[in-house]
């Protein structure tokens, strides 16, 4: 597996982690009502969206490079 393929896998796993973390933070907010925790959760969901956009850009940008 090349660095390019491993990076895509890494982005996918990171996205899953961030989505899970976001869900955990929202759940914590619903139980304890800490607004900062909700902010972290929402920020995490935004980061997931950024990672997915980046992953798509990365695939497109580096499609011409060999070493897959």
């Amino acid at each position: 597996m090349s660095l390019k393929a491993f990076h895509i896998l890494f982005i996918v796993i990171s996205s899953i982690l961030c989505a899970g973390f976001g869900a955990w933070a929202v759940n914590e907010y619903l139980h304890f009502g800490d607004a900062a925790t909700l902010a972290w959760g929402l920020g995490s969901f935004i980061f997931v969206a950024l990672l997915l956009v980046y992953g798509r850009w990365f695939l497109k940008k580096l499609s011409g490079l060999n070493g897959w």
Binding site: S2, F6, H7, F10, S14, L17
Partner: peptide, 15 residues
């Protein structure tokens, strides 16, 4: 590239 593979692995462990 090999260093990058190592670095990704180390980051994945943290994940």
């Amino acid at each position: 590239e090999c260093t990058g593979l190592y670095w990704h692995f180390v980051d994945l462990v943290w994940i």
